[in-house]
Amino acid sequence: MVDRLTIERRSWLMSRVRGKNTSAEIRVRSAVHARGLRFRLHRKELPGCPDIVFPKWRTAIFVHGCFWHRHLGCKKATTPKSNQAFWQDKFERNVARDSANLAALRSNGWHAEIIWECETKSPLALAARLDQIFDNAQVQGDAV
């Protein structure tokens, strides 16, 4: 299948994709803040520069886009039809980098979690996911 957009239009569209302060990230931050929890954003000194960091509990949350980070089984994790070799290589590098960042955080004693973009669409699903994360953080020693 041929891309419906011109090369210039596709390039412009992809240049608008943000890495920080995405709508999914803002939904997670709002839900966490509503629980009365305080956090830090985008800590560059930590591997992978996590989106949301709770230093007190050594917990880091990455809010991943399903398309860019290849959420398995998600309908948003499609591969573009044009230039598939490029996209496949890019996605493999993203997944490998994500895995290395999670491993580095965990080896440094941090509790690292991923919240997927599709999990942020439903407030109930997001609340359940946050419950799961903070229950795991409690298991690691400190009450959240």
Rank of each mutant, 00 (worst) to 15 (best):
R58M: 13
S99D: 09
D51W: 04
G19V: 11
R10E: 11
Q88K: 14
K20I: 10
F86R: 01
I26F: 03
E119N: 08
L46R: 07
C66E: 09
H111G: 07
I52Q: 04
A60R: 05
C118N: 02
S99Y: 09
C118I: 08
F86W: 09
G65Y: 10
D142H: 13
C66S: 10
N83M: 02
N21L: 06
K76V: 00
R106P: 01
V63E: 06
R16D: 03
L102T: 03
N136S: 15
E92M: 02
P123G: 02
R18G: 09
E117H: 05
T22M: 09
E119D: 11
E45C: 06
V32W: 13
T22C: 06
C74A: 03
G65I: 10
Q140G: 09
A104R: 07
R70I: 12
I52C: 13
E92R: 14
L124W: 04
A143H: 14
K121C: 00
V95T: 11
A60K: 05
A137W: 00
A77S: 15
A125I: 15
E117M: 06
D98Q: 00
W110C: 03
P80S: 01
S122T: 00
A104T: 08
F54A: 01
K75E: 08
R129T: 08
W12G: 14
V28W: 12
W87R: 04
C118V: 00
E25A: 12
K76H: 14
K44V: 12
D98W: 04
A137H: 04
G141Q: 06
A60D: 03
H71A: 04
A103I: 01
E8D: 15
P123E: 08
R40W: 14
A128H: 06
V17F: 11
H33E: 03
S11P: 05
T78C: 12
G141F: 07
F62G: 01
